[in-house]
Design a protein around this nucleic acid. Structure first.
Lengths: 378, 378
DNA sequence: AAGATCTTTGAATCCATGT
DNA sequence: AACATGGATTCAAAGATCT
């Protein structure tokens, strides 16, 4: 089977995966089933407002983005366009889905404000630092050396996907920051037309899109790109074994994207296994430790310095020592907080048990149970 | 004289330099004379004050702000505040003045959109990359490792100040980019209160403000900070021999800022000399070189590779060799362009003269004349 | 064949002054 | 105010060409 099907603009609504749709983004998104997409990646027109032509100091002419699709009458017209496609994207997003938008100072502030107005919840703004940006030839401004991505959840409070551990593990074991460094899309990666000219004026580097997908989706998730262009998002999605839906207005771009996508070989599945994720490990209740005999009711727990003590009860609650009130019985977390006078406490690391004369956090017991269940690392 | 005067909120309007004004930013800006300020640096609050309750746009208040209508209300109030202070700042700015605003994803998109709506002309967005950002403790997002500054002119087409050569010279001779790396304000630089706690929650590093002032102002220029806080902008302005006007609502901050400013010793003036800028050098006509004997009429000029030749005439024009048409006589620039078939040409660097068997650009002769006039670098 | 040098190019809101 | 003209101005990476 080919990597994609082609759906005419008039097709009935259903979420066919791995398709390139030729048509208007807003109209075509309206045909997709609601709440069907895990991630939207959007690279909308930037609304560059360029004056005359620009020449390099050697008198060569800069090939500017002067395409009609990037021209808008006014900020108001651009805002209306932005709100329309954002609303359409929001409808298609699953409740826990997220959205990335990329832009420059020409448009990103308007996009960001519209996102907030429409109820999206911004999670991060991210800076793509360009390793090899075009210089400022006239020496009149700072080199425009970055673009901005906004990452937003469909709603505040959504339980979105973020592969924290995988990113950290791939980043020398430090958290991935909001500033990313990548070179421009040049050389072999840059698609060319029959005459050898760049096929699309704003093709994005695959490495940038790969980080987006690896950070916020899982294998099998559906990624929608409403401004597919040369097909980078779809090609990367296929390589990373994500499904995609791409919408592109211009037939020539869509055609090139289809060929590009078909040439992609998905990575072996074991290359995409997520590293151990503490967050995704199955929950183990303290009561399960009691039930399974890892902790015996009546055993005394203490904090690391032995200042506070509590007794384990059969139901998995614990009772603070030297406290008479009713509320001195509760979860390991509540009682840890109460003992310290703190608002919150991680009981798993606060409370310790003595074994063979040494103190261990009860988290060690939990790890043993998980190990016995064979679910230590998913 | 002290570095500042204190002007009560009810004082009459006049631009007294080097003052810290206690009062409301918008009201106090309205008292300043219009078109009197070269640069506005603003670090506005990003919290939304509504109904007496202080809301912070971080996810810790998810339950409180999951209603889109509430969000809109909050954003609308923030937008109104933003427009009001931006309009007041715009009135005070000189026509060729510029404005910097710093913010995070919570507010910067709204500020940027408002700037554009009000007619400001964005010159750059700039990323302050934090060398030592606070990690994301819960591992649910990318480390928020940057803040964004927007640099905007009062109007499109304005002739703003940009010390391009100085920035480039201080950056290993490559032009300054839009991504800046600075550590947070910590250690000795961070102001503390009597109890040893940080005086102000968002004190900015002086190095960041210094780059702002060094890039977009000249010594003696007036810098206005409508949200002065702990006084960083004013202190840096004084050190760099710029004048300042600071407005701060809270007396405690203003008091601390005044003490801080008074302790600043301005840098020696020669530490602030701008490097030579070809743009600002006095004009010298080619005819002056002929008149002053630096070039003799009849001498032959060639390009660097000896492909084209021309003869110097007594009136400061040159005549292309092997060209008969009338238009083969003209300025060094026109003839350089004509020789190459180019639209434009800098004749000073294109044409060369032979001296003692070596070719020199005629720009060298111009430098000699300037040197003799004592105006090599103004 | 290997290294040195030249050429090309990239989402760009890119000049100043006198007539 | 429109127009003509002087003359100031670029960094990194990839590919092509030359030594």
């Amino acid at each position: 089977m080919a990597a994609h099907d082609i759906v005419p603009a008039g097709a009935p609504a259903r979420l066919a995966r791995d398709q390139v749709i030729v048509g208007d983004s807003i109209a075509e998104m309206a045909r997709l089933p609601e709440k069907s997409v895990d991630l939207v990646f959007a690279d909308p027109p930037y609304n560059l407002q360029l004056g005359g032509e620009l020449k390099r100091p050697d008198e060569s002419r800069v090939d500017a983005v002067d395409d009609a699709w990037d021209q808008f009458e006014s900020f108001a017209a651009y805002d209306a366009f932005t709100r329309a496609w954002l609303l359409a994207a929001r409808r298609v997003l699953k409740p826990n889905g997220t959205l990335f938008v990329i832009g420059s100072y020409h448009n990103i502030f308007r996009v960001g404000a519209a996102l907030q107005d429409l109820g999206f919840w911004i999670l991060n703004d991210i800076v793509w630092r360009k390793a090899n940006p075009m210089p400022n030839f006239r020496g009149r401004r700072f080199t425009n050396a970055h673009e901005t991505l906004i990452w937003a959840a469909r709603d505040a409070g959504a339980k979105y996907t973020f592969n924290y551990e995988a990113l950290k593990a791939g980043n020398d074991d430090v958290q991935m920051r909001s500033d990313w460094l990548f070179p421009l899309c040049t050389g072999q990666e840059r698609l060319k037309d029959a005459a050898g000219r760049k096929l699309h004026p704003t093709q994005k580097p695959e490495a940038l899109i790969a980080r987006v997908l690896l950070s916020s989706t899982r294998p099998g998730d559906v990624v929608l790109d409403p401004f597919l262009g040369s097909g980078t998002t779809a090609a990367v999605a296929r390589r990373l074994r994500r499904s995609f839906v791409g919408i592109e207005r211009e037939e020539a771009y869509a055609e090139a994207a289809r060929a590009r996508i078909d040439a992609v070989e998905p990575l072996p599945e074991d290359a995409l296994l997520a590293p151990p994720s503490a967050r995704e490990a199955p929950r183990v209740a303290f009561s399960a430790l009691v039930e399974r005999g890892f902790v015996t009711p009546g055993v005394e727990l203490t904090d690391a310095k032995g200042r506070f003590r509590a007794v384990v009860r059969a139901d998995g609650t614990i009772a603070l020592a030297h406290a008479a009130a009713d509320r001195s019985v509760g979860s390991i977390h509540r009682m840890g907080a109460l003992a310290q006078g703190a608002e919150a406490c991680n009981g798993w690391t606060f409370w310790h048990v003595e074994e063979e004369g040494r103190l261990h956090p009860i988290d060690v017991l939990r790890a043993r149970l998980r190990s016995e269940m064979g679910i230590a690392a998913e």
